[in-house]
Design a protein around this nucleic acid. Structure first.
Length: 280
DNA sequence: TGACACCTGCGT
DNA sequence: ACGCAGGTGTCA
């Protein structure tokens, strides 16, 4: 479900409902006690009575900054979903964690596949967390030159490297394929073999793809909903991820290839994204 | 680097 | 019945 544009859309849609609100009582469902760390008793004890000062985001993590100085980090993984509703609102299965707010409403967290995680961390723990994640794609300090030298410094297959959150934050399977397609770079190229020109193009297309998706409030393939329960509108804008094997490339008409790279389904155009560009 | 694990549900 | 899914963690 969520890559950077989707998490950022959730942040923006939840912020008006949660900023400044006090958490009266936190609840963790019995069938998913490992959803949060520390354990449910400590987690709830440190949450209850605190106010949410600000909503943030780091990579694919949503952040609730509390007035205690602690931070809640939430990773939605594949099917996590958050919404603020009236307590009387009908509930659906797979609600694992929720809390009562001081305006009488509830924040609810659903996760069908149960991969998502919440953590309540101290400022010192936040520093470590923050350092373990690569740069934000829109960080102005991430220049084309910096990005090129990051790529040269890692001898890795390009696509799995883009998905590695310690290398760069927020990119997932959809937008990795989209950015590589737009940049005309084969997903199996090696990071240290890209030219400076290609590195610059790739960074540029990563930013284009992410900001365009954000403008359309994220991509809903199936489950993703923002904080108001609305799906994103970006699916129809995807150029390659939504295509099947042998579909025509939207740019050149050649047949799209779908194979597996780094254990992830990967779409690319062998003609627009040659393995060996020099030979072209 | 890959194989597999963690989960549930949906489309073929 | 089987393959696949927006993510990541751990093992060899």
């Amino acid at each position: 479900m969520p890559e950077l544009p989707e998490v950022e859309t959730v942040r923006r849609t939840l912020a008006p409902h949660l900023t400044g609100r006090r958490i009266l009582q936190t609840h963790i469902g019995e069938y998913r006690r490992t959803v949060a760390t520390p354990d449910p008793e400590r987690f709830c004890a440190r949450m209850d009575g605190r106010s949410i000062v600000e909503l943030g985001r780091r990579g694919k993590f949503l952040l609730f900054r509390l007035d205690s100085g602690d931070t809640v980090t939430i990773h939605l993984r594949m099917t996590g979903e958050l919404s603020v509703v009236e307590p009387a609102a009908a509930t659906t299965p797979h609600m694992h964690l929720w809390f009562d707010l001081d305006d009488g409403r509830q924040l609810r967290y659903y996760d069908v596949r149960k991969f998502g995680r919440w953590s309540l961390i101290t400022p010192a723990q936040f520093e470590l967390f923050d350092q373990s994640i690569g740069p934000e794609p829109f960080d102005p300090e991430l220049t084309a030159e910096t990005f090129a030298s990051m790529l040269r410094g890692r001898r890795r297959i390009l696509k799995p490297l883009l998905l590695d959150q310690s290398f760069i934050a927020g990119i997932g399977n959809i937008y990795a394929d989209e950015a590589l397609f737009r940049a005309g770079i084969h997903p199996r190229r090696h990071s240290h073999e890209l030219t400076a020109d290609e590195a610059e193009r790739l960074l540029c297309e990563i930013r284009w793809v992410l900001s365009s998706a954000l403008e359309h409030r994220g991509t809903t393939l199936r489950d993703y909903r923002d904080g108001n329960g609305e799906p994103g509108e970006n699916l129809s804008r995807l150029q390659i991820y939504s295509l099947d094997h042998d579909d025509p490339c939207p740019r050149c008409g050649a047949r799209i290839v779908r194979d597996v790279v780094g254990q992830r389904g990967t779409r690319f155009c062998p003609s627009c994204q040659p393995v060996n560009p020099q030979a072209k």
